[in-house]
Every structure is written in C-alpha cells, then in structure tokens.
Design a protein around this nucleic acid. Structure first.
Lengths: 337, 337
DNA sequence: AGAGCCTGTCGAAGCGCTTCGACTGCTCTC
DNA sequence: GAGAGCAGTCGAAGCGCTTCGACAGGCTCT
C-alpha cells in the first residue's frame, strides 16, 4: 500500500501539501500541484478510506436501505438502487447496501459507527418505526416514499395521488363511466405502504368529481388470482369498460384473460397501468400508462442528500409529477346499448 | 459520539481491555467483561468504523459489483444482491454496492483504498477485463458466473451445462424429437456471458447423444420479437414439439402465441424454462423448469469469501447442481402422423 | 519604506481504535 | 518452596490521514 507520506517524499513536499492537493482546501502553486499529481499517478496512490474517515469524520458513503422482501415491485427497487449507486458516484460517494432485515437497529449501527454519512430509505411505511430515529439523528437522510407525517424529513416520491387522478381523467375523457381498479396485493395495503393508498385516494377523489363509478380490488399477482378478481369485478359491475392496474404481476394476466373472454382491448375495454415504462412497452398490448420514474427518483434522492451534506438544501418533500403516455390499450368507451 | 475511552473510563478499566472485550482476542475475567458490556449498553457505544479500519486494516466490508444494465435478468440480480447482503451481515460484513460503470477502475479504487476487504463480481464475461486485476490483487474475491479461464479464481455458478443437458433429457424422455431453444437476446451471446453459451453447449451435446434435433434461436424479449422468432422456428422445423426457453422476457409471449396458434401446452407442445422459480410459477401455464437458484448463489459466494478472509478456503469452482421441476407445461410428445 | 496582506508551504497534533510487550498475581509441578 | 506457566490487565505505539496555526516571502497600499 502506498501512503500519503510516500507520495510526499517522492514529490519532495510535505504530507500536508499532498493532502491539500487532493482536497483543494488550500491554494497550491501549479508547479507543486503538477509534481504531486505526477507522483500520485506514478506510485498508483489511493488514499486509505479508513484513515480518511477517521481524520475527517466523513466516510463518503451513503447507506441505502432496501426491502428484503423480494416478492414485490422488484424491478423498480433494482432500478432505483442502481440509479442511486451511479449518481452517488458522480458526487464522490459510495453506496452501502443495507436490507431492512436488521430493522431500526441498522439505522443505529450505521449512524453510531460513522460507517455512512447519510442514509436513503426505501419502501417507507406510513408510520415507519425508523422515522423517529431519523428525526433525532445528526445525519441527514432521504426517504423514497412518503410517510404519513413528513415533519422534519426529506422525501422523494412520485405524486401518486396525482397519478390516480390522471388515470381517471384519461378514462373519463374517453367516455368510460365504470372503472375497476386492480390494485396491489392486499398485504401491501395492510402494511400501509403509502403509495398504494395515495393512488387509490387520487383515483377516488377525481372519480367522485367526474362522476365515475369506481370499484377497487386488491389482487395478488398471477393468473389464478387475476381470474378470480376479474370474475368478481364483472359480476358486480357488468358495465365496467375501464381498468386501472397498479400491480406489475397482474398486468399480463389481465390482458390474457380479457382476450380470452372475447373483450377486445381497446375496442371493448380500456386498460391504464401504473408501472415502469418497460413493463408497459413489453406487454402483449402496448399499455397506456403512468410511468414509475425509478431512475429519476433515485437521482433526486441522492441530489437532495448531497445538498444536505454540503450544508445546502433543507427538509423538503419532492413529489414528481406523473406523466401519462397514451399507447394502444386505451380508446373511446363503446356506446352502451 | 461515544468513544472507546469513555466506555473504558465508565467501566473503570483501560481502553485496551474494552477492545479485548469487544474482539475476544484475549481472555477477560467474567466480572470485567460484564462491567464493560454494561457500560457499552448504557452509553450506547458503537465502535467507529473508520478508526477500526485504520487500526486493524480491516473494513469488514465486502464490495459487490453488479451490472449497470437493467435490461437483463433483473430479478435474478436483485435476488442475489439481497441474499449477499443478508448473509454477509450474519458474518459481520456490510456490502458496498458498486456498479460496473466504473469498470476495472472500481476494482483498483476499492482494493487500493482499503474500502473493502474483498469483492464479489456478478455478470462476469468469459474473458472479463477485470480478471487480471483480481488475480493480481492481494484481496480475495469471488465471481458469480464462470469465465473461460478460472485459474486462480473462485467462482460460484449454476452448472448451466448440466442444466442444458437436463432439459434435453426431460424432453427426450417424453418422446420429443424436434426441440427449439429460445435463447437470450443476441447481445447476451455477443458479450460472451458464460451462462448462455454453456447452457447451449449442454443442450447441444446431450441432444447429439440422444439424437434429438435442436434449433437454437436467440430472442429479444417481448411479443413482436417472439412472434417473429416463433414463425421462423415452425417454418424451418414444422415438427417442433419441444421448447426450451432461457429468457424471462420471452416466456409469457411464447405461451400466449402458442395458445393463439392453437397449439396446446402440454398436449401439442412442451415447454421447459430456465428461470427463477417465481417466474415459472406465476406464468399462465405453470412451467416445468430448472430454477436459477439466485439466493443460493449469493449465499455460497459470501461463504466462500468469508472462508478466504478467515484464512480457510481456497480457490475453487463451485457449480451448483441444477434441479428440474416438472410442472404443467411439459408432457408426452404427440404421436406423429 | 514599512505596515499589512495574500499565497504557498510546513510541522505537529490529533481522529478512535488495535495490538504488542510487559507486568502482576496466581496456581501447578517436582 | 522455587521455577514455570498462565490468566487478566495495562500502557503506549502506531495505523494514514486532515487540519490548524505558523511562517517565509512577495505583493499592494498609503
């Protein structure tokens, strides 16, 4: 291992000078800087992370806490995580991957040990038990997701309420009067994960305003569950012509079942999905959808955090505006007989 | 921040004693140990990670390098990553998440800076440019995936050659003579990602031995691509009754298209998939499949690495034996007219 | 022309921990 | 009953870096 001292000796300067070249915290003459940089390159010097962290009480690491559960909206999580890692690097930070297995203890451990300078939490529940710790911590943090009480917290999320409203508006404009919402699995609502409830709220509020009838059904993924759910929907509301789906695992089954039942999309029935772009595009019918902007969410989360670490920025809730892309799965409602 | 010294003072012992209580590297009397542990708890002490790393030249961090590309086999990657993180914690390690965006530089940076004690690399290509660095490094590493030359490396992977063979054997036993292989996107083969080629090799070798006709077609995911591929397959080999699919994004399109063409699964055509369990179970027909044991791979990778870090263990290639689960998508070949 | 100010550099003091050697009382052993 | 051996504890020396204060030399003022 090459050390600072060796670089200094090689360049004929003192250790502190090398340090200042590296950090830029004091002005250094061009000739000295070049000589030092040359030595660094020649010797293949990399500053020791531990020593740096100890001396500066900055680890340049951001902890990212992702849900252990691998059953749900996995691609979104993955996309966020990768975006976070990539963007963090451009700001000079590395990412420490934490699962929520340890629960709140992980927060204590990481803040307590100075392992990371800050945290990003994903999959935040409305009344998450980690929140009090974050509020009390001296380290900045950002949530991806929106808890019930955002006081003293910084959050980044898609505006799911607006997302719901947007879906309803689209279907209403096309003339649909009876709309069914195929939601996430019941477990997701029970955990009080904010996004599912907020979408529903947006859907309901706007439906009321536009005088649409709305029927909400949670749904596990897969064919069997979807078949059962669909049967109940048409049983209860035979005139349903519009669907809003917020459940990646239900999208394809829904399309297949509709087809199988002789209901053409979009001639007889319109489908609007809330899902990542890729799912919407790769489906058997190109789906009209509101995209979940995973990368954007990851990016914004990191940027908020870096701003805080730099002493800029403040607690703030960033809600990304949803965008609805019209594709092949939605069209004018059929004229009712 | 509470420090070791404060704990020592609170417990009425020297700092080194506290350190030894923590590390267990020297024997400590029960009464002293208890007093120290009590103080630690009361003060809420967490050892400073940086200081620890500096003094011991051990960070207790394992770097995990995952592919940036989010277009491919994402759930598998995610599952591995999460398993790695969880298992690493049980051994006292945290995970540093690296994307392959930095390429080989990331390896240099991490080894050079002592940020991590070891690395796990995913998505290894047959002739990966990071390999020479790993061979030369003084840090242990484990690959998930199998490069062409495994000399001096530790690798963990599913035995994809055996996987291919297993699929062919299953179809042969059922009496199928003409089998089509729907592979990953052409780009995957071009990158020379080992697993795709090895599966193909296993398929071909065993097919030759069992005198099956095999037709391999790479396929992008999605419906349009699958439709084109399928048309070409039946055009070229009208008697095809067996399919092996190694491409998550092609599974559902294939099933839908077969159905649409009036070919019943498994009565007319059998389908065997190589994919994660969940995909096989959630598909519109429950798929006979060889599971990609993502969690197991992650677990084994960490265990190999920890063994090396502890001075146990050696370079070794761990190939997990594939298991084929018969479900509803495969059955006896129809009698040829 | 001297006070006052930058600019560029250095030395030294830690940051909080691990670990080595040394020391103190013991208990064994022959 | 003297020597060996061991369990239990301590002090001090770093680990490699950042950062503070100091200072030399050159500049701009009045």
């Amino acid at each position: 291992m090459v050390t600072l001292a060796e670089v200094a000796q090689h360049a004929g300067v003192s250790a502190s000078t090398v340090s200042y070249v590296l950090s830029g915290k004091r002005s250094i003459s061009t000739t000295t800087r070049q000589r030092v940089e040359e030595s660094i390159r020649k010797l293949g010097y990399h500053p020791n992370a531990g020593a740096r962290a100890l001396a500066s009480s900055r680890s340049n690491i951001i902890a990212l806490m992702i849900p252990l559960r691998t059953d749900m909206y996995v691609p979104v999580m993955m996309e966020i995580a990768i975006a976070v890692a990539a963007v963090a690097r451009t700001h000079g930070y590395d990412i420490l991957l934490l699962t929520d297995e340890e629960g709140p203890d992980a927060v204590r451990r990481v803040t307590g040990s100075g392992l990371a300078d800050a945290m990003i939490l994903m999959d935040v529940e409305l009344d998450d038990e980690r929140l009090p710790l974050l509020r009390g911590a001296d380290q900045p943090s950002v949530l991806i997701g929106l808890p019930a009480d955002t006081e003293g917290l910084t959050c980044v999320d898609l505006d799911f309420r607006a997302t719901g409203a947007l879906c309803v508006e689209h279907l209403a404009r096309l003339g649909h009067r009876d709309v069914a919402v195929i939601g996430e699995a019941a477990a997701v609502y029970e955990r009080h994960t904010g996004f599912a409830e907020r979408t529903l709220d947006g859907l309901r509020t706007r439906a009321r305003e536009l005088e649409l009838r709305l029927l909400h059904r949670p749904c596990e993924g897969g064919y069997d569950a979807m078949a059962a759910t669909l049967a109940r929907v048409f049983d209860e509301r035979p005139d349903t012509t519009g669907f809003v789906v917020q459940n990646e695992a239900a999208v394809e089954p829904l399309l297949a079942l509709l087809r199988q039942q002789g209901r053409a999309v979009p001639e007889d029935v319109s489908v609007v999905a809330v899902c990542p772009e890729q799912v919407a595009i790769q489906a058997s019918v190109r789906l009209t959808s509101v995209a979940v902007p995973a990368q954007e969410m990851g990016r914004r989360a990191v940027e908020q955090l870096v701003a805080k670490l730099d002493g800029r920025g403040s607690d703030e809730v960033v809600l990304l505006a949803p965008e609805l892309t019209v594709r092949a799965s939605s069209g004018p409602a059929p004229v009712q007989p």
